[in-house]
Design a protein around this nucleic acid. Structure first.
Length: 312
DNA sequence: AACGCGTGGCT
DNA sequence: TAGCCAAGCGT
């Protein structure tokens, strides 16, 4: 006996699922992974063109492993959180070096790779391999919070109890479980949205605790506080990275231009230290540029290793 | 465990 | 209009 939410949401999904390219028949586990990493905290419409170009250029981990950090960061463009791009590259190197070029298919193996956490590992298992997992992203959490708890929004942090309950809803067999994960996510993305849910179009409106209670507002709304944006280090990091991505000929941006992009000296020092530590930039004389090569140790290709004590 | 990490569209 | 929000992860 499936959970009462399952049959109507699966049926709804059959009629309303989007034809996203990473769901197409020619998808690979790697292409699914790339989509999941790009989609972390990033809207689908923004990911689409970048994912397509990325797939054409680096269809698998072996191709990506051969790319330089500067190429990868430019291809990432304005998706945001550029550390994700480096982690994906790092992930490709690890797959090539330690897994024979084949992405692990189990959650533990996936989670051991850089940039792959609980959600992404579960998503690859379900969406790339069609096997059972418990996908718990913000969409799924919101649907379950509303339908089962009568809460407007999920809590700030995922709890063990929430995982257990979500697992109890996932059907036992692989095929249905994989479909359920995609379906409930899709419902959260298209109908049971955070801002303006379309309850009149919802397949489980007749069994939703939140709707039954008259859609009460989020009780925890005041507790959620967002970090500001204007003038923050985060904004300054973004400005410096945009400057370097757009540097003509992949060249170096002179110190004066960096100062113009981030005028406050203390902030500039903090931001540059952070970017250097994250391997998102490297110094070139007095200027700055995107890092040229993979920073990890070990030979991935036949490229010769530079001599050991190379002076800077 | 709470925090830092990009970007741009929407209301 | 200025928050709010979008398929999280690592530390």
């Amino acid at each position: 006996m499936p959970h009462p939410l399952v049959p109507p949401i699966l049926h709804w999904f059959d009629a309303h699922r989007r034809d996203l390219p990473w769901r197409a028949a020619d998808r690979t586990p790697w292409s699914v992974l790339v989509s999941e990493v790009m989609l972390q905290q990033t809207p689908v419409v923004r990911v689409l063109p970048v994912w397509r170009a990325w797939q054409e250029r680096w269809p698998g981990p072996a191709e990506l492993a051969g790319a330089g950090h500067d190429e990868v960061l430019r291809a990432w463009g304005r998706l945001g959180y550029p550390r994700r791009a480096l982690r994906l590259h790092d992930c490709a190197l690890t797959v090539v070096e330690r897994h024979g070029g084949v992405l692990p298919a189990d959650e533990a193996g996936l989670r051991s790779l850089p940039g792959i956490g609980e959600y992404t590992a579960a998503a690859v298992v379900a969406f790339a391999h069609g096997r059972r997992s418990v996908v718990l992203d913000t969409n799924v959490r919101r649907v379950l919070a509303r339908a089962l708890d009568g809460a407007a929004l999920p809590t700030a942090h995922l709890t063990a109890g929430e995982r257990t309950r979500a697992a109890a809803v996932v059907p036992p067999d692989d095929a249905s479980a994989a479909r359920w994960n995609a379906a409930v996510m899709e419902l959260g993305a298209l109908v049971c949205t955070a801002r303006a849910p379309a309850c009149t179009s919802c397949p489980v409106a007749d069994r939703c605790a939140w709707l039954a209670e008259g859609r009460p507002p989020d009780a925890l709304a005041q507790r959620r506080r967002r970090q500001g944006w204007h003038g923050t280090d985060r904004q300054a990091r973004g400005a410096v990275m945009a400057l370097l991505r757009e540097a003509v000929g992949g060249g170096t941006v002179e110190a004066a231009a960096v100062e113009a992009a981030c005028p406050d000296a203390d902030q500039r020092e903090r931001v540059l230290a952070g970017l250097l530590a994250d391997h998102l930039v490297e110094r070139n004389g007095d200027g700055l540029r995107l890092p040229r090569g993979p920073h990890l140790q070990g030979a991935r290709t036949a490229a010769p290793t530079p001599p050991a004590a190379a002076p800077r």
